[in-house]
């Protein structure tokens, strides 16, 4: 019984090795398309640009926006104040 099982195992192993050997020699015919490299790196470049733009509008844009708003506030505040003062100086009856 054991001998029979051992023989079956050996046959199974031999068949497995044979199939592996034959399948590993299989090579699909043809050549890899030359344009593939350009396509891959163009896509990566496009994704990088997209990521930069996205980054600009999420992180940097808010920073830039707050900086700009801050600078507008700081520059416009004295002017506004000046205008207010001017308005106060004017005679309300006029």
């Amino acid at each position: 019984m054991n001998e029979k099982k051992q023989s079956t195992n050996q046959e199974a192993e031999a068949l497995k090795r044979h199939l592996e050997n034959q399948f590993q020699q299989l090579r699909p015919q043809g050549e890899m398309p030359g344009s593939l490299k350009k396509n891959v790196f163009d896509t990566l470049e496009a994704l990088r640009l997209l990521s930069d733009v996205f980054d600009l509008f999420t992180v940097k844009f808010t920073k830039v926006e707050s900086t700009v708003i801050g600078s507008i506030d700081s520059t416009s505040a004295p002017a506004d104040k000046g205008e207010e003062e001017k308005e106060e100086d004017q005679d309300p009856s006029q």
Partner: peptide, 20 residues
């Protein structure tokens, strides 16, 4: 798990050209 069926023994005769 064993990859043997009695009727497959003659797959040992299978060669690359035939497999292709």
């Amino acid at each position: 798990d064993e990859e043997i069926e009695a009727e497959h023994k003659y797959l040992l005769e299978l060669r690359l050209l035939q497999l292709e």
